[in-house]
Simulated assay, not measured.
Amino acid sequence: MPSIVYSGVGPRIAYERRIAGLTQAELARAAGIALGTLRKIERGERGVSDCLLDAVAMALGHDPARLLPNRERPDDRVHQAIPSLSAVLATYEDPEDGPCREPAALHGAVASMVTHRLSAQYVRISRAAPALLTELCRALRTAPPHHRPAVARLLVDACRAADAVAFKYGATDLSARLIDLMRWAARHADDPLVDATVAYVRTETFFASKAHAAGFRALAGALEGLPRDTRPSALAARGALHMRAAVIAGRAGEGDAAETHLDEARALGDRVPEGVYGGTAFGPNSVRIHEVSVAVSLGGARLERALELARVWKPPQDVPAERRSSFYIELGRAQLWSGRPDAAFESLQVARRIAPQHAREHRWVREDAATLRRLKRADAERLSNFAAWCHAGECV
């Protein structure tokens, strides 16, 4: 994928560097670039490639989008990756010959992709996904039988990261094809917990098509297929499916079913520590976040439950950024529907600070920002800037 070169980022990098208390030499060393290069960038004498932007952003501890001028679109890099991902899906059963890294290196590359997904670093995923998926398909084809399950599990995890990008950026057909590749790879993994992961992710296709009843049936079938296992990973897999079932039942307006699955998820969440299991965050905090999601979906009197929970609890830092951002997006919608537009705007801004790429591409953020702008509440200039940032006009 060709690299994008951004101009006009030097002053922003210099500003963030000074805020972080770093000298040019310290930032250059942390980013792994030449000091002279950084000086030229800050003086505006050269542009910044996407790889270099990522390195500087990582050294500063920021999302790359934070360093870009307002006129730039960081999602350009994501859209450039879409054709490459489509090409991978056209050849996954018969990938081109080429090198394959050792299993440990492949495992490390996939682990990085999972980390990027959980922290909503979609641009970084888009850069790495096409080549990594191709390599994993090649590795699966050439692996000896006793190694195939492990490679298949890696392929499922990498596909899930790529799917997060496709789904968040509205490429629903590509998302469905990536999920089909996950299902194909899962057959080679021969692991019911991998099957549970695929069922969890596959629910996206039912959300996208509003086929909630079919999605609910698919999750029920996945729950039936899980063995009764007391390992934390198995308990978490079952609990995650119950959380997902509660959300899709809420979207379908089935309050009783949603409450039943939330109760099951709470009981399982109490049996495991909060953490990431098989690529999915699960535990008591994750269940609470899903309680808010269900309450917003069902609406009515249940909105007060979401607002009450938010008054006494906030997701802690150890919950992945994408999920914490989702909490504030859902909370913002509850506040907006409850006649609290200023509080809703504040929640949307918190979601943006936690996971900018996630918030920017979330349809509810755009819809709610457009509604708030029509209401002309809160700080008009900040609200207009926010609405422009998330392309709120695109949802009208």
Rank of each mutant, 00 (worst) to 15 (best):
S3L: 13
I4C: 01
I4R: 01
V5G: 02
G10I: 03
G10M: 06
R12S: 00
R18E: 06
L27W: 01
R39F: 07
K40C: 02
R43M: 09
G47A: 01
L52K: 04
A55K: 09
M58V: 09
P64Y: 00
P64S: 01
P69C: 00
P69Y: 00
N70V: 11
E72D: 09
A81W: 11
I82W: 08
S84Q: 14
S86H: 08
L89A: 05
A90C: 10
P95K: 11
E102K: 11
A104I: 15
H107G: 09
V114I: 14
Q121G: 07
S126T: 12
T134V: 08
R138C: 10
R138V: 13
H146K: 12
V156F: 04
R160Y: 01
A161P: 07
D163P: 03
A166G: 07
A171I: 06
D173K: 15
S175A: 15
S175D: 12
I179G: 06
A185W: 10
H188R: 13
D190L: 04
A196L: 04
T197M: 08
Y200L: 11
V201P: 02
R202W: 05
T203I: 07
F206V: 09
F207W: 12
F207R: 03
S209H: 12
H212V: 06
A222E: 01
L223K: 00
G225E: 13
P227C: 09
R231Y: 07
R238T: 06
G239S: 05
A240M: 07
R244M: 09
G250N: 04
G250H: 03
G253D: 08
D263V: 09
R266W: 12
R266F: 06
V276K: 11
G278M: 00
A281V: 07
G283M: 11
P284D: 06
A295R: 06
L298E: 08
R302P: 03
R302C: 08
A306Y: 11
L309Q: 10
V312Y: 09
W313Y: 11
S326I: 04
E330G: 02
E330H: 13
L331N: 03
L331R: 07
G332Q: 03
G332W: 01
L336A: 11
L348W: 07
I354S: 05
P356M: 02
Q357N: 06
H358L: 09
H358G: 02
R363D: 08
L375N: 06
K376C: 13
F386W: 05
A387S: 15
G393H: 14
E394K: 13
C395M: 14
C395F: 12
V396F: 12
